[in-house]
Simulated assay, not measured.
Amino acid sequence: MRGTLEKIIDLLPGLWLWRTRHPHWTDDADWDPVVTSVCVHAGEEIALIDPIAPDQSADVFWKRMDAEPPTLIIVLKPDHVRDVDFFVERYHATAYGPYLFWRNDIPKVRIEPIEPGNTLPGGMVALYDGRGRNETPLWLPQYQAILFADAFTERQGKLRVWSTPWHKERVLSALHKLLELPFQFIIISHGQPIHDRAEYEHALECPPWP
């Protein structure tokens, strides 16, 4: 893959993200060209979530990455394979992700499967979002944050749930259930990446993004 690095954002000590222009974006895509990847220090682990590798000209990124190499690479959703192979091979990290992938986008490296309820190394917990897209959002207890792949999107400054045919039947109950966790903010891949708990609650009351 390889994308153009747009920005690095430090959220908390041990939790930062980078914004990269997606190299496969096209004009007819229903999402912005710049997407988010996350780095989290969890216990003794350093995990990259849904990472896209910036091109080699992004010196500030690669110096930071090489100074504290990742030990885990985590894929939250089948179509977020992105650069898992590259990062696993470069840093000899262990990969986690879905047990199923799209037939034309299958990682070459071994992927340890994740299912809702699994606790990963470092204490991160895979969650259930009810959307039937084989996505496992990730709960980060020490940061009081939840990471999502595509369950949410930001449109025109508002956080929205991405639509599925069973939004009322399954999705809303699953996302309301996550309010039992003491999270203060969420991080999403598409659109403005950081949203607080109040925005999350408001998104559940809005119609899903079609």
Rank of each mutant, 00 (worst) to 15 (best):
D59T: 13
H92V: 07
W102E: 13
I114C: 10
T4D: 13
L127V: 09
I74Q: 06
I46K: 12
H80N: 06
L179R: 10
L120M: 07
I46V: 15
P116T: 11
G43C: 13
A174N: 03
K77Y: 09
E115P: 13
W62A: 03
I49Y: 05
L181R: 04
D79V: 13
T153V: 15
P165L: 12
Y91P: 02
D79Y: 14
H24L: 12
A145I: 03
S37M: 07
H195M: 12
E135I: 09
I187L: 13
F183W: 03
L140H: 01
Y200S: 04
F87C: 04
I186H: 00
H24W: 14
L12S: 03
W139T: 02
D129I: 09
H176Q: 13
V34I: 06
E115V: 15
G97Q: 03
T136N: 10
W31R: 06
L179G: 06
I49F: 09
A151C: 10
A95Y: 13
P13V: 01
G123D: 14
T94Y: 09
V171N: 06
R82D: 07
Q144C: 14
Y143T: 01
E89W: 14
N118G: 14
D105R: 07
P137Q: 10
I49E: 00
R82I: 08
D79N: 13
P51R: 01
A126Y: 08
L100T: 15
L72A: 07
G43K: 09
D59Y: 12
D10E: 14
P165R: 04
T119F: 11
H190M: 03
R160F: 08
R82F: 05
A203I: 00
I8Y: 02
A29F: 08
V109N: 02
R21M: 02
P207S: 15
W62Q: 07
E180T: 07
T136S: 12
K177Q: 09
K77L: 11
H202Y: 12
L159E: 02
R64T: 01
T153N: 05
P141C: 05
V171E: 07
P51F: 01
L17N: 06
A149G: 06
M124T: 11
E201M: 07
R103H: 10
